[in-house]
Write a protein that binds this DNA or RNA. Structure first.
Lengths: 172, 172
DNA sequence: CGCATTCACTTAACATGTTAAGTATTTCCG
DNA sequence: CGGAAATACTTAACATGTTAAGTGAATGCG
């Protein structure tokens, strides 16, 4: 907002603009964050009415789609980290929305599944969720939405392979 | 909406697939989340080396760009909620990366600015940050990146006006 | 077999997201 | 002027993100 030329005697004035960078508000992470927040803002009230957070809803949806799953598999599907999932499963189990039983073959693993109550809750939320999604689709345009999601998928894909070589390039 | 005929005897098998919905992994919030996570995974190690979190970095960047700002304005710029910002500013101030002074005209407001140390820290992080951004741009394609960000902006815009009418439609 | 290693999770600790409530200041208005 | 209402934060409380460490069970292998 201030376009002042370099000021060599910046003793009184608070320092700024010393480190040139891209315009902050146009960075990719920011764009993604803002877009996602705009979308989630549409859903949160409906979920909240049913006492669900976004992540709890993700887990229920994932479970409804895959019968039963190990915790690790569920984490991958719902895109949650293990510790978050652990906590949430504990709470969902306490609310009787899910069930777990340790696998017979391997005592380390526990199979998680949605309970009858969980299904009932999902059924009561799904309509409004779908309605909201439909409204978003309509506003933004169905074709454009597909296009956007394709680009997002490509972005994810083209960054996916960078993660394993931290060990190698870590020569600092 | 449910395609399955009623099953009165679902006692043994874990219940599932009772609530048909869009394929979970292809929902828009999920796509946005995954894409953003893929991007942030590139940046986090570099920030971490300098003892900064993503949000702290956002605040420093915002401050470097606008000289000084009120807390509310900063929250809008860095896209953080007030409570988060309050906590982070407290910590950044304790680390002498920012400075604050209450405005003379209005004792409620406090002006926040980046400190000399903060500028130094920014200068030490900016190069790797820019390098990472450049690599992402190159991998994904500069033109495609612009296109993606335009779509994200449009999405945000077309959902922006929905927020004020919760009071009105809240007739439940 | 025995034991180090790996594996599947869980706990812990700290930082942020999210909503609600609290505090101090200012403004509005009779 | 004076008190209700609005404003600019801050605190509180709970849930999740993120990394590191812990725990118990399986595996690999000498």
């Amino acid at each position: 907002m201030v376009k002042r030329p370099a000021d060599p005697t910046n003793a009184s004035a608070p320092t700024a603009r010393h480190v040139p960078m891209r315009d902050f508000s146009r960075s990719l992470p920011m764009s993604l964050l803002r877009a996602r927040e705009a979308v989630m803002r549409q859903f949160r009230p409906a979920l909240r009415e049913h006492g669900l957070t976004e992540q709890q809803w993700r887990i229920l949806r994932a479970l409804a789609a895959i019968e039963a799953a190990e915790v690790t598999e569920l984490a991958r599907t719902a895109f949650l980290l293990g510790p978050s999932l652990s906590r949430i499963l504990r709470d969902l189990e306490a609310r009787n929305l899910i069930e777990r039983k340790t696998a017979k073959a391997d005592q380390r693993r526990s199979m998680v599944s949605i309970s009858k109550e969980g299904v009932k809750l999902m059924a009561s939320v799904a309509p409004s969720s779908e309605a909201i999604y439909a409204e978003i689709t309509q506003r933004f345009g169905a074709r454009k939405l597909v296009e956007l999601q394709e680009m997002l998928g490509e972005l994810e894909l083209c960054l996916a392979s960078t993660e394993a070589r931290e060990e190698i390039t870590d020569d600092a």
